[in-house]
């Protein structure tokens, strides 16, 4: 442990990143336990300023709901979207990338051309079109992100595999008659996890921002479910008379995304020093 503290991997970035990410995740996961029954509508307690009443440290919103409770509960949507979309993209992307890189052929063409198309489509414009068709919901937002992002992982993994498959340990395994499936799972996969993890961390951050943008544009989820983007959009109306309604959720997004970005940046230095995951 003390060796780690002295190593080059240990830095301010790492402490801040880990601290923010873990801290906020903890608050969000246990929000219903930390604030039982809070966040209910009370039209007699509208727009109370923060730090006035001990029951509402961050004040209340236009419907008299406790802002602090909603900020923590709202993180649940953001974290869900962030993590689920990334895990989904990774599962598809890594599998396709491995197959494409190892076997080449038609899969290779599919990956490369999908990558071209994905790069060429302006995401938010496409998103507002699709959401207009299917309606806004948590599932739809996640699906949309997976559809548009899996190919990033596929491309990354494919490039890695192309380099790795010429390496001695893979050639040796092939010569010894090890099955392709085992070569992929035992020899290739572990060697390309680093860059994938880095890209995952940065994309969780990115997707939290994208989700809040979509909700802000009015394409989000059920307004009774608190979400950071939705709170920001609603709070814009009250910005000049009740800043706390939008400033606290804004800070929550900023700190969460910052934590993940710091962590991702640090992971990149540690796991991927050559910078293959540059976005």
């Amino acid at each position: 442990m003390s060796a780690f503290l002295k190593s080059r991997y240990f830095s301010l970035e790492f402490i801040m990143g880990l601290g923010l990410t873990l801290g906020i995740t903890f608050c969000v996961l246990f929000s219903s336990w930390l604030f039982p029954g809070a966040g209910e509508i009370d039209l007699t307690a509208r727009l109370i300023a923060p730090f006035q009443q001990p029951a509402h440290p961050f004040g209340t919103d236009p419907l008299g709901r406790d802002v602090m409770a909603r900020v923590f509960a709202g993180g649940w949507i953001s974290l869900q979207v962030g993590f689920v979309s990334v895990v989904g993209s990774v599962l598809i992307g890594v599998a396709v990338g491995l197959v494409a890189g190892y076997y080449r052929g038609i899969w290779d063409v599919v990956v490369m051309r999908s990558a071209d198309i994905q790069l060429a489509l302006p995401f938010i414009l496409l998103a507002i079109t699709i959401i207009a068709i299917v309606g806004g919901s948590l599932t739809n937002t996640i699906l949309l992100l997976i559809v548009s992002q899996w190919v990033q992982y596929a491309r990354l993994v494919r490039a890695q595999v192309l380099a790795l498959r010429e390496r001695e340990f893979v050639l040796a395994a092939q010569a010894m008659g090890v099955k392709s499936r085992n070569i992929i799972l035992q020899h290739l996969l572990p060697n390309l996890l680093g860059p994938v993890i880095v890209l995952m961390t940065l994309n969780v951050a990115n997707n939290i921002l994208l989700e809040s943008s979509l909700t802000f544009l009015g394409l989000g989820v059920d307004p009774t479910i608190p979400s950071w983007g939705g709170m920001l959009a609603d709070g814009r109306t009250y910005l000049q008379t009740a800043w706390w309604v939008s400033v606290f959720p804004g800070l929550a997004i900023l700190l969460t995304v910052l934590g993940l970005n710091l962590l991702g940046d640090w992971l990149r230095d540690s796991l991927d020093p050559t910078g293959r995951t540059e976005r």
């Binding site: 921002l209 943008s213 802000f216 920001l232 804004g250 900023l254 910052l258 970005n261 710091l262 940046d265």
Partner: peptide
């Protein structure tokens, strides 16, 4: 470190906010 952290702060802002 400070410069890197600050530039990451810029990246982490929800831009509409």
């Amino acid at each position: 470190q400070l410069i890197r952290i600050l530039s990451l702060v810029g990246l982490s802002f929800p831009n509409f906010w």
